[in-house]
Amino acid sequence: MNRPQTTDHRPSSIVRRPSSGFLNAIGAIVWKDLAAELRSRELLSAMLVFALLVILIFNFALELDPLTRRVATPGILWATFAFAGTLGLNRSMAVEKDRGCLDGLLLAPVDRSAIYFGKTISNLAFMLIVEVVVLPVYSVLYNTNLFNPGLIVVILLGSVGYVAVGTLLSSMAVQTRTRDVLLPILLFPVVIPILIAAVKASSGFLQGLALTEVMPYINLLIVYDVIFTAVAYMVFDYVVEE
Protein backbone atom coordinates (compact mmCIF):
# COMPACT_ATOMS: atom_id res chain seq x y z
CA MET A 1 0.00 0.00 0.00
CA ASN A 2 1.34 3.40 -0.91
CA ARG A 3 2.19 5.62 1.96
CA PRO A 4 0.93 9.17 1.57
CA GLN A 5 4.44 10.65 1.51
CA THR A 6 5.73 8.53 -1.34
CA THR A 7 5.55 11.40 -3.79
CA ASP A 8 7.46 13.61 -1.40
CA HIS A 9 11.10 12.56 -1.27
CA ARG A 10 11.99 14.96 1.52
CA PRO A 11 9.49 14.48 4.32
CA SER A 12 11.00 17.36 6.28
CA SER A 13 9.85 19.74 3.57
CA ILE A 14 6.32 19.21 4.82
CA VAL A 15 7.23 21.05 7.96
CA ARG A 16 8.98 23.84 6.12
CA ARG A 17 6.45 24.36 3.37
CA PRO A 18 3.12 23.43 4.87
CA SER A 19 0.96 24.57 1.97
CA SER A 20 2.69 22.52 -0.69
CA GLY A 21 2.96 19.64 1.76
CA PHE A 22 -0.77 19.88 2.23
CA LEU A 23 -1.45 19.76 -1.49
CA ASN A 24 1.08 16.97 -1.97
CA ALA A 25 -0.62 14.96 0.74
CA ILE A 26 -4.02 15.41 -0.86
CA GLY A 27 -2.58 14.45 -4.23
CA ALA A 28 -0.90 11.39 -2.74
CA ILE A 29 -4.13 10.16 -1.16
CA VAL A 30 -6.11 10.67 -4.34
CA TRP A 31 -3.39 8.97 -6.35
CA LYS A 32 -3.28 6.04 -3.93
CA ASP A 33 -7.06 5.55 -4.18
CA LEU A 34 -7.21 5.84 -7.94
CA ALA A 35 -4.21 3.56 -8.46
CA ALA A 36 -5.63 0.94 -6.11
CA GLU A 37 -8.96 1.14 -7.89
CA LEU A 38 -7.30 0.87 -11.28
CA ARG A 39 -5.75 -2.40 -10.12
CA SER A 40 -8.73 -4.00 -8.37
CA ARG A 41 -11.71 -2.20 -9.94
CA GLU A 42 -13.85 -3.66 -7.18
CA LEU A 43 -15.39 -0.39 -6.03
CA LEU A 44 -16.32 1.03 -9.43
CA SER A 45 -17.65 -2.24 -10.79
CA ALA A 46 -19.86 -2.68 -7.72
CA MET A 47 -21.15 0.89 -7.98
CA LEU A 48 -21.81 0.61 -11.70
CA VAL A 49 -23.61 -2.71 -11.55
CA PHE A 50 -25.65 -1.45 -8.63
CA ALA A 51 -26.55 1.77 -10.46
CA LEU A 52 -27.71 -0.16 -13.51
CA LEU A 53 -29.77 -2.47 -11.33
CA VAL A 54 -31.45 0.48 -9.66
CA ILE A 55 -32.42 1.85 -13.07
CA LEU A 56 -33.70 -1.58 -14.06
CA ILE A 57 -35.82 -1.76 -10.90
CA PHE A 58 -37.23 1.69 -11.54
CA ASN A 59 -38.17 0.60 -15.03
CA PHE A 60 -40.42 -2.13 -13.69
CA ALA A 61 -41.56 -0.26 -10.61
CA LEU A 62 -42.74 2.80 -12.53
CA GLU A 63 -43.68 1.49 -15.98
CA LEU A 64 -41.69 4.17 -17.71
CA ASP A 65 -43.80 5.04 -20.72
CA PRO A 66 -42.63 8.14 -22.64
CA LEU A 67 -44.94 10.45 -20.72
CA THR A 68 -43.94 9.30 -17.23
CA ARG A 69 -40.31 9.30 -18.30
CA ARG A 70 -40.26 13.03 -18.85
CA VAL A 71 -41.39 13.68 -15.31
CA ALA A 72 -39.56 10.84 -13.61
CA THR A 73 -36.12 10.94 -15.24
CA PRO A 74 -34.46 13.50 -12.91
CA GLY A 75 -35.80 11.71 -9.85
CA ILE A 76 -34.63 8.31 -11.08
CA LEU A 77 -31.20 9.64 -11.93
CA TRP A 78 -30.69 11.21 -8.52
CA ALA A 79 -32.05 8.26 -6.62
CA THR A 80 -29.62 6.08 -8.57
CA PHE A 81 -26.69 8.39 -7.87
CA ALA A 82 -27.58 8.60 -4.20
CA PHE A 83 -27.83 4.83 -3.75
CA ALA A 84 -24.72 4.03 -5.77
CA GLY A 85 -22.97 6.86 -3.93
CA THR A 86 -23.54 5.38 -0.48
CA LEU A 87 -22.25 2.06 -1.71
CA GLY A 88 -19.04 3.69 -2.91
CA LEU A 89 -18.57 5.90 0.14
CA ASN A 90 -19.04 3.00 2.53
CA ARG A 91 -16.67 0.74 0.66
CA SER A 92 -14.00 3.36 0.15
CA MET A 93 -13.82 4.09 3.88
CA ALA A 94 -14.23 0.48 5.00
CA VAL A 95 -11.23 -0.53 2.87
CA GLU A 96 -9.23 2.26 4.43
CA LYS A 97 -10.18 1.11 7.92
CA ASP A 98 -9.77 -2.65 7.39
CA ARG A 99 -6.38 -2.54 5.78
CA GLY A 100 -5.17 -0.24 8.51
CA CYS A 101 -4.61 2.56 6.02
CA LEU A 102 -6.56 5.03 8.09
CA ASP A 103 -4.21 4.51 11.01
CA GLY A 104 -1.27 4.87 8.67
CA LEU A 105 -2.66 8.08 7.28
CA LEU A 106 -3.30 9.40 10.76
CA LEU A 107 0.30 8.71 11.76
CA ALA A 108 1.58 10.56 8.72
CA PRO A 109 2.89 14.03 9.51
CA VAL A 110 0.26 15.85 7.48
CA ASP A 111 -2.69 17.96 8.42
CA ARG A 112 -5.67 15.71 9.10
CA SER A 113 -7.87 17.75 6.80
CA ALA A 114 -5.59 16.71 3.92
CA ILE A 115 -6.94 13.21 4.51
CA TYR A 116 -10.47 14.57 4.32
CA PHE A 117 -9.90 16.43 1.07
CA GLY A 118 -7.98 13.52 -0.42
CA LYS A 119 -10.76 11.07 0.34
CA THR A 120 -13.42 13.53 -0.79
CA ILE A 121 -11.73 14.08 -4.13
CA SER A 122 -11.28 10.37 -4.81
CA ASN A 123 -14.87 9.64 -3.75
CA LEU A 124 -16.00 12.44 -6.05
CA ALA A 125 -13.97 10.93 -8.87
CA PHE A 126 -15.66 7.54 -8.38
CA MET A 127 -19.08 9.11 -8.27
CA LEU A 128 -18.46 11.16 -11.41
CA ILE A 129 -17.19 8.10 -13.26
CA VAL A 130 -20.38 6.26 -12.37
CA GLU A 131 -22.45 9.22 -13.52
CA VAL A 132 -20.53 9.49 -16.77
CA VAL A 133 -21.40 5.86 -17.49
CA VAL A 134 -24.99 5.98 -16.26
CA LEU A 135 -26.03 9.04 -18.28
CA PRO A 136 -25.41 7.65 -21.80
CA VAL A 137 -26.76 4.24 -20.80
CA TYR A 138 -29.92 5.83 -19.50
CA SER A 139 -30.16 7.96 -22.65
CA VAL A 140 -29.94 4.91 -24.85
CA LEU A 141 -32.28 2.74 -22.78
CA TYR A 142 -35.01 5.33 -22.59
CA ASN A 143 -34.38 7.23 -25.78
CA THR A 144 -34.02 10.47 -23.85
CA ASN A 145 -31.41 13.07 -24.64
CA LEU A 146 -29.50 13.78 -21.45
CA PHE A 147 -26.60 15.66 -23.02
CA ASN A 148 -27.41 19.04 -21.65
CA PRO A 149 -24.66 21.35 -20.34
CA GLY A 150 -26.96 22.59 -17.59
CA LEU A 151 -27.61 19.06 -16.37
CA ILE A 152 -23.87 18.41 -16.23
CA VAL A 153 -23.36 21.47 -14.04
CA VAL A 154 -26.15 20.29 -11.74
CA ILE A 155 -24.67 16.81 -11.50
CA LEU A 156 -21.26 18.24 -10.69
CA LEU A 157 -22.59 20.57 -7.99
CA GLY A 158 -24.87 17.93 -6.52
CA SER A 159 -22.13 15.33 -6.40
CA VAL A 160 -19.71 17.73 -4.69
CA GLY A 161 -22.16 18.41 -1.86
CA TYR A 162 -23.17 14.78 -1.55
CA VAL A 163 -19.58 13.60 -1.34
CA ALA A 164 -18.53 16.43 0.99
CA VAL A 165 -21.03 15.32 3.63
CA GLY A 166 -20.82 11.66 2.69
CA THR A 167 -17.06 11.40 3.20
CA LEU A 168 -17.32 12.95 6.66
CA LEU A 169 -20.22 10.75 7.71
CA SER A 170 -18.76 7.58 6.22
CA SER A 171 -15.56 8.08 8.18
CA MET A 172 -17.76 8.18 11.28
CA ALA A 173 -19.92 5.26 10.20
CA VAL A 174 -17.00 2.86 9.62
CA GLN A 175 -15.90 3.34 13.21
CA THR A 176 -19.21 2.13 14.64
CA ARG A 177 -20.44 -1.39 15.36
CA THR A 178 -23.34 -1.01 12.91
CA ARG A 179 -21.22 0.36 10.10
CA ASP A 180 -22.77 -1.60 7.24
CA VAL A 181 -26.18 -0.07 7.69
CA LEU A 182 -25.47 3.23 9.35
CA LEU A 183 -24.18 5.39 6.49
CA PRO A 184 -27.40 5.79 4.47
CA ILE A 185 -29.36 6.40 7.66
CA LEU A 186 -26.97 9.15 8.70
CA LEU A 187 -26.51 10.58 5.24
CA PHE A 188 -29.94 10.70 3.59
CA PRO A 189 -31.76 12.98 6.05
CA VAL A 190 -29.01 15.60 5.82
CA VAL A 191 -28.59 15.55 2.01
CA ILE A 192 -32.27 16.11 1.30
CA PRO A 193 -31.62 19.74 0.27
CA ILE A 194 -29.21 18.48 -2.39
CA LEU A 195 -31.66 15.93 -3.68
CA ILE A 196 -34.51 18.45 -3.83
CA ALA A 197 -32.44 21.14 -5.52
CA ALA A 198 -30.68 18.74 -7.89
CA VAL A 199 -33.90 17.03 -8.99
CA LYS A 200 -35.66 20.34 -9.53
CA ALA A 201 -32.73 21.91 -11.37
CA SER A 202 -32.23 18.80 -13.52
CA SER A 203 -35.85 18.67 -14.54
CA GLY A 204 -35.77 22.42 -15.21
CA PHE A 205 -32.87 22.02 -17.62
CA LEU A 206 -34.31 18.92 -19.25
CA GLN A 207 -37.64 20.65 -19.84
CA GLY A 208 -35.85 23.70 -21.19
CA LEU A 209 -37.14 26.14 -18.58
CA ALA A 210 -35.72 29.67 -18.47
CA LEU A 211 -32.48 30.02 -16.55
CA THR A 212 -34.07 32.40 -14.04
CA GLU A 213 -36.41 29.61 -12.94
CA VAL A 214 -33.57 27.16 -12.40
CA MET A 215 -31.12 29.57 -10.79
CA PRO A 216 -32.58 29.43 -7.25
CA TYR A 217 -31.83 25.71 -7.15
CA ILE A 218 -28.35 26.15 -8.56
CA ASN A 219 -27.69 28.79 -5.91
CA LEU A 220 -28.99 26.46 -3.23
CA LEU A 221 -26.61 23.74 -4.41
CA ILE A 222 -23.67 26.15 -4.38
CA VAL A 223 -24.54 27.39 -0.89
CA TYR A 224 -24.86 23.82 0.38
CA ASP A 225 -21.56 22.79 -1.18
CA VAL A 226 -19.67 25.72 0.28
CA ILE A 227 -21.17 25.44 3.77
CA PHE A 228 -20.73 21.71 4.12
CA THR A 229 -17.25 21.56 2.65
CA ALA A 230 -16.22 24.22 5.16
CA VAL A 231 -17.96 22.54 8.11
CA ALA A 232 -16.64 19.09 7.25
CA TYR A 233 -13.13 20.54 6.93
CA MET A 234 -13.45 22.10 10.37
CA VAL A 235 -14.84 19.07 12.19
CA PHE A 236 -12.95 16.25 10.45
CA ASP A 237 -10.30 16.32 13.18
CA TYR A 238 -12.90 15.25 15.74
CA VAL A 239 -13.89 12.28 13.64
CA VAL A 240 -10.44 10.76 13.23
CA GLU A 241 -8.99 11.75 16.60
CA GLU A 242 -7.56 8.80 18.51
Binding site: L168, M172, P189, V190, I192, P193, L220, V223, F228, V235
Partner: peptide, 16 residues
Protein backbone atom coordinates in the same frame (compact mmCIF):
# COMPACT_ATOMS: atom_id res chain seq x y z
CA UNK B 1 -20.41 16.45 14.86
CA UNK B 2 -23.66 14.90 13.68
CA UNK B 3 -25.74 17.33 15.72
CA UNK B 4 -23.88 20.18 14.07
CA UNK B 5 -24.42 18.75 10.57
CA UNK B 6 -28.11 18.29 11.36
CA UNK B 7 -28.43 21.77 12.85
CA UNK B 8 -27.10 23.28 9.62
CA UNK B 9 -28.86 21.02 7.16
CA UNK B 10 -32.35 21.16 8.65
CA UNK B 11 -32.86 24.92 8.10
CA UNK B 12 -31.53 24.50 4.55
CA UNK B 13 -33.98 21.64 4.08
CA UNK B 14 -36.79 23.90 5.20
CA UNK B 15 -35.75 26.61 2.75
CA UNK B 16 -35.43 24.15 -0.11
Amino acid sequence: VYTLIGAISVPITFMS
